[in-house]
């Protein structure tokens, strides 16, 4: 059992719940046809973003993935502006130019979600370089998936960060599928964390469905990075509750790809339930307090939907704005 302060546990709980209720709503809105484009939901993986970001400061950096809503919210992103961006509205984080896969909030060190698998890793490494050059004690986190661990950007980023002793934490969210293909079919190793050894950095495996465990492991890596001791690779074993993308049934044409036992595990290892149970069991808070958080979260998500719906579309002329600085 990790030694967690009650305030920290509740902070993490709020982040997990925030993401869960937000993503459930995004899923409903997508199904209802209210959202343009495509969305990749973070449901099932909330413990990773929440556990990691609770160990970070506002001035620390993160880069994210195509499945990035959870990282934005966990880092402290605004629900309204996130939802409005997913709607493609002017009030969104990127004024409707980024959308679901390209949300950023530089004011809280969220350097961007990324539609290219592994694409955020070199950027997080560069933020780490910047930290080293500016001689601050910030850290930089690259979130990525199991699929990205087979990209050149993974290997180049780990090597560069290690060779230069950069304060970067590479957080692999191993949800066991690269799009529709099981990770076990695309790499001949069980644990991605072992690749850390090839680059001369520590590699840790953590139960990515337990936010408090994630938080504990990340704290060690953050301390190491802030002390100038270099990067860490953390593999958080987790599960994707839903598919790769919402609405994927349309092109699956009746095919299935999830392994039944894995899908069952995804249901059992629900990060929200696990954390809820641990908080009650360990007497961090009572059911009433958690219910209050639930109500507050649900209301804030509903407000975000209203905000996004009522926000204006971007003016057509803005297509030529935000070009050269």
């Amino acid at each position: 059992m990790s030694d967690v302060q009650p305030a920290v546990a509740l902070d993490i709980y709020r982040r997990v719940l925030n993401i869960r209720r937000f993503e459930e709503e995004v899923g409903r809105l997508f199904t209802a046809g209210e959202l343009p484009g495509v969305v990749h939901l973070y449901i099932g993986e909330e413990a990773v973003a929440a556990g990691v970001c609770a160990a970070l400061r506002d001035d620390d950096y993160v880069t994210s993935t195509h499945r990035g809503h959870g990282h934005v919210l966990a880092k402290g992103g605004d629900l309204n502006r996130t939802m409005a961006e997913i709607f493609g509205k002017e009030t969104g984080y990127c004024r409707g130019k980024g959308g679901s896969q390209h949300i950023a909030d530089f004011s809280i060190g969220m350097l961007g979600a990324c539609g290219i698998v592994g694409g955020g890793m070199p950027i997080a490494t560069g933020a780490g370089l910047s930290i080293k050059l500016r001689k601050t004690d910030q850290v930089s986190v690259a979130f990525f998936g199991d699929g990205a661990a087979n990209e050149g950007s993974f290997h180049e980023s780990l090597n560069l960060a290690s060779a230069m002793t950069l304060p970067v934490i590479f957080v692999c969210e191993n949800n066991q599928y690269g799009e529709f293909t099981p990770a076990r079919d695309t790499m001949n190793i069980e644990d991605i964390a072992v690749r850390a050894g090839g680059y001369g950095m520590p590699g840790h495996i953590v139960d990515g469905t337990d936010a408090l465990e994630v938080h504990a492991v990340v704290n060690q890596a953050v301390t190491r990075a802030r002390n100038g001791e270099g990067p860490t690779l953390i593999e958080a074993k987790t599960h994707r509750r839903g598919g790769h993308a919402e609405g994927e049934e349309a092109f699956l044409a009746g095919q299935t790809y999830r392994l039944p036992e894995e899908e069952e595990m995804a249901r059992l290892r629900d990060p929200l339930l696990i954390l809820h149970e641990r908080i009650l069991h360990e007497g961090v808070a009572d059911a009433h307090a958690l219910e209050n958080i639930e109500q507050e979260t649900t209301r804030r998500v509903a407000d975000a939907v209203t905000f996004a719906r009522e926000s204006p579309w971007p003016a057509e002329e803005s297509v030529l704005e935000d070009t050269w600085a």
């Binding site: 950096y61 880069t63 530089f106 350097l111 694409g119 890793m121 070199p122 950027i123 997080a124 490494t125 560069g126 933020a127 780490g128 370089l129 910047s130 930290i131 050059l133 500016r134 930089s140 050149g152 950007s153 180049e156 980023s157 090597n159 560069l160 060779a163 230069m164």
Partner: peptide, 25 residues
């Protein structure tokens, strides 16, 4: 510190330049 020999690793070096440029370098 300001004239940095890097690995032969163009993708990461380019991306590191981007990440550094976005954060004050």
């Amino acid at each position: 510190e300001r004239v940095i020999n890097t690995p032969i690793s163009e993708l990461a070096v380019a991306g590191a330049g981007i990440g550094a440029a976005a954060t004050g370098i």
